[in-house]
Design a protein around this nucleic acid. Structure first.
Lengths: 227, 227, 227, 227
DNA sequence: TATGAATGAGTATTCATTCAT
DNA sequence: CATGAATGAATACTCATTCAT
């Protein structure tokens, strides 16, 4: 029995170590992504910076894409939990709170938008359907509580409108980030005064857009996705 | 095939013939993009399907990216011109017309959204700043008349709001297309009933979102340049 | 008869024009080669700078290599003619004159060495045997008089030694130029003090080497090339 | 073929095994270069003939040029070591020994001259300065002992003359090889009796030229760096 | 003659992933 | 468990030359 416990202990310790190493890898990936584009991050360098072997990365994640998809999922869930927490503690008009909470919490996570914008390009290639599905189900799980809170708290919202609003918001976030905070040469081009009218602050634009949506909200009816 | 090879062996000596061949190449590119992702399109195959030599493609476009950027620009301008035409001929409430015209004309151009969603990934890499700038200036030129029409026709719009609305709409279009009409495995995953709540019709969503924006519109002030 | 003469005149004028245009092309090629490596010179740019069409270049030279081979031949012949002229007018010891004339006249033709060093790499590829042979026969024709002059004027030389010496000199010129006046990164590397011992002035080295050969000359016997 | 594939499937984990595989690659490169020009050798074929994957080549050498530069360096050092060994064991007049040793040892290494003649064309393009510098420093290290031996053993040599003589010899070797043992169509042209006077045996010419230099040697003074 | 539009061969290199050790 | 050596697929672009006009 002592032996068994010891074995259990070992396994537990092992499991802890594994989780820690997995977290390590994700942390390194996050740090790297903060300063360089996805394509320029090689698994070899990621492993080296994490102090492990290349092959070891593949003991924890089946592919490079899966690794970053996991990262996005975690950051997204953490953000949504924080959003829910802040919403539940809000004061003043709910519409105002919703807009504020969403945009301000996003401002504190500068890389989240870049990660989110990457999801579709990543999801669409090199990841198995099963994993995409897993990600999306995790997303629903994270969105759910916020959506339900919105359904309840927003006077103009009928059931399901919370989720619709969140999906719209997500689309706007991604679209505006790509348009107003592009990378590479597009960023340089945006600095030219001749195209100044196209240069907007992504978070300001998002804020205005979300507020307008809420002001003009009209329930969309029981929306159930097309098959 | 015979049609595609219509130019083979001939030499485009007059500006007219050269423009025709250029248009030919763009047409082939458009056709190919309609059925496969950008990355899988090789210049060699594009040339073969156009019935010309690889090198000939490079007589008309400096790079593969420039070719597709030109394609997007042309389709975008054509769409915006059509939008303006329909807006000027609209009947009934202007808000309703704006939403209808934008979404219905988009529905008639099934590949435009895919092209638009590609722009940022293309612009951000492999294209010279000068060319990005050229594209963006062309975009402004095409957006301008529509934006001004909106400024005038929309009671709730102050000067500049037309352009802001169009930029928001563009962002929403791109973001919603990526979220609701993804490619590859993401499309397959979206068909699973467990994530049905994430599966929306992109054009319906866009329509509702644009309408909500207009209903809730509150002038954003004279927004110029980056905030 | 008048008509025939007129025709002859036309032909003659045409012939003159052709020669002039051919010379034009060579002059432009020479100017370009003076400031950039052979590989970076494109026929298209050469034609443009000469104010003619690409195809026109090929009316005067069968290949790019042939064009430059012709250029080398002309410069080489001009140089050897000048060398002979100066040798015939020399004063003082003949050995000294030979070395001086060869190196000083070379110093006045800064690009000749680069052209000469190119010959073998060019000859070995893309030029028909017949043309290589023509070049070499022209070379013999130009070397001949100088070689014979050397045979006569140099006390230590037997018949044939003049040509042998010239061939040795040519080899040394090419070898030393490649070693001591390289292009690209090799030139940069040579500037490093750690390899200073390898950095020599090519003309000084050539001068010393030629002088040493003459001082130590011993007739090599009737050398007739291996078949 | 079986021999070439001796490593296939194995993994070189120890430094010893890695050195062996590296040597293997160099050996294959040497064999290929013996029968075809550098440009026609593709890394893909090199790898196939070595029984390894394309990528594996790049595990051992950063570029194709670096691979061949390494090859030249190794052969050159081996040759110079052999030269020094034979010089130290020479009998009879030192001048005679120097000429004999240099030319005869070269005759036993038929591909060395081709390799050496390639160096400048390779060094001048596609290789980083650092690597050129490394090559040149290795060259100095290999030349040094021979140069010093010459300084001591040759009565006519002052300090530094040994190195000067070796550099001259190197230039003559390269120049004469290119002139008298060309490749491609130039070789064919040289067989024509009309240019027989240009056809010399490169090693015989080198031998005579070196002997003449030594006979006529006059110290050049302490030559250091560029003149 | 002159033109320039058309052609198409040709290749080094990276990097995610596997699997022998 | 961990490692890192080995793998190999995959592709835009240039430019000398030709030949229809």
């Amino acid at each position: 029995m002592a032996e068994a416990r010891s074995f259990q202990g070992k396994r537990a310790r092992r499991a802890e170590e594994k989780a820690a190493r997995r977290a390590d890898i994700l942390r390194v990936a996050e740090r790297m992504f903060a300063s360089e584009p996805y394509e320029s991050i090689t698994v070899a360098r990621l492993a080296r910076e994490a102090g492990i072997g290349k092959g070891t990365v593949y003991l924890y994640f089946p592919t490079k894409e899966a690794l970053f998809l996991t990262l996005v999922g975690e950051k997204l869930q953490a953000w949504l939990q924080e959003v829910l927490r802040q919403l539940e503690a809000h004061e003043g008009p709910v519409e105002h709170a919703v807009v504020e909470v969403l945009t301000l919490s996003l401002a504190e996570r500068p890389h989240l938008l870049a990660l989110l914008s990457m999801v579709h390009s990543i999801l669409e290639r090199n990841v198995e359907v099963r994993m995409v599905l897993g990600f999306k189900m995790g997303l629903i799980e994270a969105l759910g509580p916020v959506a339900r809170w919105l359904d309840d708290a927003m006077p103009a919202f009928s059931e399901g409108d919370g989720m619709t609003f969140l999906l719209w918001a997500h689309s706007a976030m991604v679209g505006m980030f790509q348009a107003f905070a592009p990378g590479g040469n597009a960023a340089l081009a945006l600095q030219d005064p001749r195209v100044a009218v196209l240069a907007r602050d992504p978070l300001v634009a998002l804020q205005s857009a979300l507020a307008a949506w809420l002001r003009g909200w009209k329930t969309t009816g029981a929306v159930v996705g097309e098959g």
